[in-house]
């Protein structure tokens, strides 16, 4: 008798927890694959409840590098992507996976490193800084190594500096591939007292935990544009295109643009992003 009661209680608990676990499964959902640098700044945590409130939808945010976000998009596993790698985004749209590339904010990349700057790259141009790091081959450079937008930007700088990326990758132990998001990569660079390329937003939001300082901040190549792209319903009819368009309209609306433009001022003393409402910023 006692055993039956225990069994009944356990069964009840399991059923109750199942219900609890799957509440929301039936609700309308919108899946966004976002670049890690947007996520790590906390921008999505900030905007998510506002959007959910306004549109009565569950916003599912997948933490992924630009490369993975594009892959999810191509497979139709998400409804919309928020990324930062212009050339690949344009290709994505050209191949018919995305409806349209809509830039909504930008900031700049930085090269950060230990305060002592052992390689001496401070205030160089990005290309010169990379050349110096390569020649010295003594201080660690932590690459995202994850096919993300930041990683793409890093490759672009190497190319612009005249190097073949494959040669850089295999140049020596000083070149480290983290294979992780922006935040974790910064923590790693700080641990190793090495250099890395980062977006300013993530750097500022992690700054308190890092023993790294910005060393290179100027250079046209450092422009970092974030855009949203809805997945084409022609490629993947099952995606939620209507809500994806709502999200794009939301992000580019004057009210939200203002919020984005002010995001971080309170906490870091300066904004993390410059809103650009659908127009391509010119550096």
């Amino acid at each position: 008798m006692k055993r039956k009661i225990i069994v009944a209680i356990l069964a009840g608990l399991v059923i109750a927890s199942l219900l609890a676990g799957f509440v929301g499964c039936g609700q309308q959902r919108l899946k966004v694959a976002t670049t890690t640098s947007l996520y790590d700044t906390g921008l999505w945590d900030y905007l998510e409840p506002i959007f959910e409130e306004e549109y009565g939808v569950e916003l599912d945010i997948l933490y992924a590098g630009t490369g993975i976000a594009l892959e999810y998009g191509m497979r139709g596993d998400v409804d919309v992507i928020a990324v930062h790698s212009k050339a690949r985004e344009e290709q994505f749209v050209a191949e018919g996976y995305g409806v349209e590339r809509v830039p909504f904010a930008y900031n700049y990349f930085l090269i950060v490193g230990p305060e002592g700057d052992p390689a001496g790259i401070k205030d160089m141009s990005p290309e010169d800084a990379f050349r110096t790091l390569y020649e010295a081959a003594s201080s660690s450079f932590i690459s995202r190594g994850d096919d993300s937008g930041t990683h793409g930007k890093e490759k672009a700088i190497w190319a612009s500096a005249g190097y073949d990326y494959e040669a850089v990758r295999t140049a020596g132990q000083w070149y480290v591939e983290a294979g992780r998001g922006m935040g974790p990569t910064l923590l790693m660079a700080s641990e190793m007292q090495g250099y890395t390329l980062t977006d300013i937003g993530t750097f500022l939001s992690y700054k308190s935990e890092l023993e790294l300082v910005p060393l290179v901040e100027e250079g046209a190549i450092l422009l970092n544009v974030y855009s949203v792209i809805a997945i084409s319903p022609e490629k993947h009819p099952g995606t939620n295109i209507e809500m994806a368009n709502n999200l794009i309209a939301f992000l580019t609306s004057p009210q939200i643009q203002e919020l984005i433009g002010n995001y971080g001022v309170e906490q870091y003393g300066m904004p993390l992003f410059t809103p650009c409402a659908g127009a391509e910023p010119q550096s």
């Binding site: 499964c25 497979r75 139709g76």
Partner: peptide
């Protein structure tokens, strides 16, 4: 279960299911 996969139409990717 990816939408581009053989049974992607079930739309269960990135869900508890």
């Amino acid at each position: 279960f990816s939408r581009a996969g053989p049974i992607g139409g079930l739309d269960i990717m990135f869900t508890p299911v």
